[in-house]
């Protein structure tokens, strides 16, 4: 901001250690200032916290229930516990609940570490129920009553309805991030929203129409915020299917998009001299991590090389282009 002095500070304790942060900070900010990072799933710096996943909950002295650190503002004198029995229990359970109902195989390394730290055992809810294809038709307030011997899941087929990205809702943990990025927090397109209710809640277009029939403008901002790989570049999806996605061999180079004068920073993810994915830094003032269709997907022309391109990766990428 151009004007205005720093707001006054607030002092609180995190696991017994005093920490001072500006007023208006969240408990998560305070934890980070105290050097104690917290697990998060539905939180991202460039989105408004929805505090839905509850994996960042902490114990605040005097509160009956745990508080979501991502969105609870700090108060003077607050005493916050991030590693109490109750906190550990809730975090473990949230991870277990998610892993017992969705495919968490592509979450980031930190999440894997947290899950192991809390000793998650998703198998204790029984074998996972197999894929079903009626999730988009379920109605609020009704469900089929089972015998409880298989843990219900969100497993279903991948939705592939365009050449740019796929939706694998078997991986969806309903963190709301894609809805926020598509909607108020960035793109303001509102092509997707949460539909249904309860365990049958899901991310959907209106009447589950395909993306190409929806308001989607293919900015891919939903992909960039997805924490579980449910939303994925078509290129990544095909390379993974061909067992050729090798993240540790990829380079990430920051440059500037060529498609207009706004100057969006792009992080080009390159494998075998081919761009396989494009993201944008979420801490950059121009984009806050968000791009448009051209910046996100318009790179193909530098690698549609006809006869020059005969490597195995090109063959897969061509398939991804449909």
């Amino acid at each position: 901001m151009a004007d205005g002095a720093d707001p006054p500070g607030v002092t609180l304790t995190v696991d017994g250690a005093a920490v001072a942060v500006p007023a208006g900070s969240t408990i998560l900010d305070a934890c980070r200032a105290a050097g104690k990072d917290q697990p998060t799933l539905c939180y991202l710096d460039n989105l408004t916290p929805v505090n839905a996943c509850r994996v960042c909950v902490v114990e605040v002295d005097g509160n009956r229930t745990l508080a979501p650190s991502c969105s609870r503002p700090v108060e003077e004198g607050m005493a916050v516990g991030t590693d109490t029995d109750r906190v550990r229990h809730s975090r473990k359970m949230v991870y277990e609940f998610l892993a017992s109902s969705a495919d968490m195989g592509l979450v980031d390394e930190q999440t894997v570490r947290w899950m192991s730290y809390y000793g998650c055992d998703p198998a204790r809810y029984g074998p996972q129920a197999g894929p079903v294809e009626d999730r988009d038709e379920r109605t609020a307030g009704h469900h089929r009553i089972g015998d409880g011997h298989a843990a219900e899941t969100v497993h279903q087929s991948v939705k592939v309805d365009n050449e740019l990205y796929v939706r694998d809702y078997s991986r969806c943990i309903l963190c709301y991030k894609c809805v926020e990025a598509c909607g108020e927090d960035a793109q303001n397109t509102f092509a997707i929203a949460v539909a249904g209710r309860g365990f049958d809640a899901r991310i959907s277009t209106e009447f589950d129409v395909g993306l190409t029939d929806s308001a989607c403008v293919f900015c891919g901002n939903c992909i960039s915020v997805c924490p579980t790989g449910a939303l994925m570049f078509r290129s990544e999806h095909e390379l993974r299917a061909a067992d050729m996605w090798e993240e540790d061999r990829q380079t990430v180079t920051r440059t500037v998009c060529s498609y207009c004068g706004v100057g969006c920073n792009l992080d080009l993810h390159v494998q075998d001299n081919r761009i396989v994915k494009v993201t944008s830094p979420i801490d950059h003032s121009v984009t806050s991590g968000h791009l448009c269709i051209k910046g996100r997907f318009g790179y193909e022309y530098v690698q549609e090389l006809g006869d020059l391109a005969v490597t195995p990766i090109d063959e897969v990428l061509r398939r991804a282009r449909g």
Partner: peptide
């Protein structure tokens, strides 16, 4: 049936 589905503890917990 009546869980709104927003938060994980209730959305999955009521099923489990």
């Amino acid at each position: 049936d009546e869980s709104c589905g927003q938060c994980v503890p209730c959305r999955v917990g009521t099923v489990r």
